[in-house]
Write a protein that binds this DNA or RNA. Sequence first.
DNA 1: CGTCCGACTGAGAACCTTCTCAGTCGCGCC
DNA 2: GGCGCGACTGAGAAGGTTCTCAGTCGGACG
Lengths: 382, 382
Amino acid sequence: MQHKERRGGPPSIVEVARAAGVSTATAGRVLGGYGHAGAASRAKVEEAAQRLGYRPNGLARSLIHGSTQTVGVVVTDVGNSFFASAVRALTDVVRAAGYEILLANTDSDPAAEQRALQIMWEKRVDGLVLAPQGPGTAERLRPMAEAGLPTVLLDRPLAALPHVDQVTINNTACARSAVGHLTRLGHRRIAVVSEAARDLDRLRDARVKDGDDERPSAARLVGHLAALRRAGIEPDPELVVHSPYDRHAAERSVRRLLRRNPEVTALFCTDNVLSSGAVAALQDSGRSCPGDISLVGFDDQDWTTLVRPRLTVVRQPRRELGTAAGRRLLERMAERERHAGQESAQGAGSGAAAGERIVLRGRLITRESTGPAPGTARTPSA
Amino acid sequence: MQHKERRGGPPSIVEVARAAGVSTATAGRVLGGYGHAGAASRAKVEEAAQRLGYRPNGLARSLIHGSTQTVGVVVTDVGNSFFASAVRALTDVVRAAGYEILLANTDSDPAAEQRALQIMWEKRVDGLVLAPQGPGTAERLRPMAEAGLPTVLLDRPLAALPHVDQVTINNTACARSAVGHLTRLGHRRIAVVSEAARDLDRLRDARVKDGDDERPSAARLVGHLAALRRAGIEPDPELVVHSPYDRHAAERSVRRLLRRNPEVTALFCTDNVLSSGAVAALQDSGRSCPGDISLVGFDDQDWTTLVRPRLTVVRQPRRELGTAAGRRLLERMAERERHAGQESAQGAGSGAAAGERIVLRGRLITRESTGPAPGTARTPSA
DNA sequence: CGTCCGACTGAGAACCTTCTCAGTCGCGCC
DNA sequence: GGCGCGACTGAGAAGGTTCTCAGTCGGACG
């Protein structure tokens, strides 16, 4: 009498129980590690499980427990080293607490974000880390947040969701400090390469503070403008060059900039891929750096110390970003666990409790790609 | 009479059905999109679902269908740009077919790999992509492969699992071509930086072909040795320097090498982080490149054209690796789907059918960091 | 010797959805 | 008008686990 396995699938606990000659309840107790089980049953069940190659079915378990031990992570692109680092750090933190990662990329496409959120919701993740993507994220996320799903926002704040934890970087201040460094060196014609250049008019007079509802690139552009203003420089739209998020496009944009505005003596790049394009364009331009032109990049990648001159950059704590998000999420999930059942249905996690806003600090690392503006002997302002 | 929601959790289909005044069967038909449902019921159910914010529970659905629409991805480190790119490409491919990604990192720790595999198994992923990690992977993976779980190996082949699809890069040939390039330039004292240097004795006489059971770093070292032999150069253990997988460690190793063996005129690095360490060490050494010493790196990262001289590198098709793995996995899963039920329990997917071995080709990109060996006027050999 | 207690076990509900099977109802056709 | 058929609906099992509740059994104590 061979144990007839009903389907091709892996053996279930009832097959193990039958093989061991006990009830499924007892088999469950042994294999699930709950309740008591006698030594004799235990041995029989363990032997049978071993023999049949039994693995518990996490789906069934999750269905009952209402917990999948999985967190959803939705980012723009794991292929980007910024998110790759953050996700890696995040994974380590939550994994130590027994959670796995369900990963989705959106490529900044709101529709893709919507799909990703739906799926995370259907798969019943226990928590969610999201790098918001463009217009409408708050509305897309609200139902989930209000249903009490522990959620942490990453990299980009969302003022419209005050109850949701948010972990970001002080982008505006970073940019201000980077550009401030340039103005102090006497530069007046300072260009910026930014994905957000198109929004210049809107951002121009905005008093965007760190932690407000802006994409990092926009926040950095705001910081750039603020630094110029502080130095008494009127921002020139000509020097705010747009580039899509692509190295070669950035290279072309910078090349065009240098051709049209040869008087520029300094350049600020608002992120890593734009920085690398700018370096390429600069090398190609025949200008000496920092002799003719100074350059500040964003994100302290390994290669920034390998090029000559070594790049002055804003270092962002990418790993810490992931770590902080993971920790915050674990706390929220633990809270929810604690309050489970004792709270009534409504708003278990969306109560009046304000979400925490963690703003990590990037910092300027001065290296060799920035120097005094050409022909400046006058004392730097401020 | 407010619908009493039993638990804090999201509404289930029975709540929707009750609210709509129909049976769960009908509600299921409407919301699940199977079977027929009358227009009147349909409207009532949809309204109720909308009002209650119903989302189907993927766990229950998966439990019934026996499919989670999820694939497990186990790599060394998503933070590493190589895997970041591959995983990104992989995600795109499988996502287009409706699969999500469950991600785990192992850091080359066999125990972590074991844990990851267990969890993937318990969570009942529909397929698995694994970058094998060190000793014992075949044994860890075998039970799952034999249970018919579609599996694709990534980046590192495993001869012990002939039935499993494997997608790799022709590392040995790549290394041979890189080092052959150096010997043709007249170099005789060629050093190599490798994670696998410790295994030199074992690899020395090995006739490892691409697609054999070796870590990429070992395969590349074998290619290095083969190229030397072909040029009639006896490999010198002094010039095979070990470095852990860390940029700064690599930098130290190379610095020490140059100090002890100043006669070295060429250096081959077996992967991206080692390459970046070597560049740093070289810049620091005061030697001119390629005048005094030539350098070949591995993996064509963006920065390799930003440093001076531009690096000669072996380009690996990282994204294609992920794409190919994803496609292969999709095919396997489709096959399994097709055969489901008609095949008997045993070995549904582990039959005699040999796994496919896809070997993608990297290629040498000659740039400026390699030149003729100093003082060679004689004609290059071969 | 009877009773009670503890250790252990088994039956069965619950989790949420899918899907089979049987049943109801209206309508068209003979 | 009766019958058959099709469209639709509902009851209930299944999927694999957890967990409650009730029950059995041996032993200890009065």
